[in-house]
Amino acid sequence: MSGKLLNIQGLSAGYGPLRVLHEIDFSVAAGERLAIVGLNGHGKTTLFRAIMHLVGWQQGSIVFDGTEIGGTRSLGEGRRTPGIVRLGVAMTPQGDAIFPGLTVKQHLDCGAYTKAAWRDRALRRDHVYDIFPQLKEREQAYVGKLSGGERRMVSVGRALMADAKLYLIDEPSLGLAPRISQRVVDALIDIGLDGRAMVIAEQNVALLTGKVDRMIGMHAGHLRGDVGHVDLL
C-alpha cells in the first residue's frame, strides 16, 4: 500500500448487464512505466475508463495518491471525471477523444486545466513541440484535419500539458502505420518520469518489448501475472 501511487483492489466494472472487469487487484508505484497487454475486448480500456469513472457501473476501491477515488456507482458516468483529472490523472483515450473544430494550439491549451499550468501554457506548449516537432508547424491547423498520427500526438501532448502524476495511455498504436506508431511509442518512452508513473495499454506486445519496467497481461477481464521484461525477439 505505502509507496504506491495507484492501488486498485477488487475492482469490477462494466456496462449495463455486461461485466467486463472481474475483481481486479492492481497497483502502480511512483516512477514506474508499465504496460498492460492483451487482445482487443479483454478490458484494458475498461480498466482505464473505470479509473476515470467513465464506465457504466463500477465497484471496488481505487486509491490514488492517498485519496479514495473508487467506490460503488451505477449512475453519474463522467460526473467525477474532471475531479479525478484535477487530482493528477491524465488519460489519453482510445481513438482520440479530440475536438475536431479546435486548432492544435487551442487543443493543447484545453489540457492546461490548473491555474499554474494555464499561466505558463506557452512554455508548456513549447515543451510539447519539443517532443513532437511536427505539431509546431501545424499549430493553427484544425485538429479534425490532421492525420491519424498527428492526432495521436496532439492527444498525448494534451495529457502532458498539466502536472499529472499518472499517465494512462490507451492504445497508442491504434489505427496507425507501424512506423508512425513506433515513433509515438518511442516518444512516450522518452518522456522523463521522475516520480510520475505511466501505464500504457497496448495489444501489440512487440512495440513495447524491453522498453517498459513491467508488463502485465490482461485476459477476459482478469489480470494475468506480471510478465516483467519479455524479449520476444
Binding site: M91, P93, F99, P100
Partner: peptide, 19 residues
C-alpha cells in the same frame, strides 16, 4: 474555449478536467 470543447466532445472535455 471550455464551452467549445464541451460542445465538440463532452467526454474529451471531462478528460481535460473541464466539468
Amino acid at each position: 474555449l471550455e464551452i467549445r470543447a464541451v460542445m465538440q466532445n463532452a467526454e474529451g472535455a471531462a478528460l481535460c478536467g473541464i466539468s
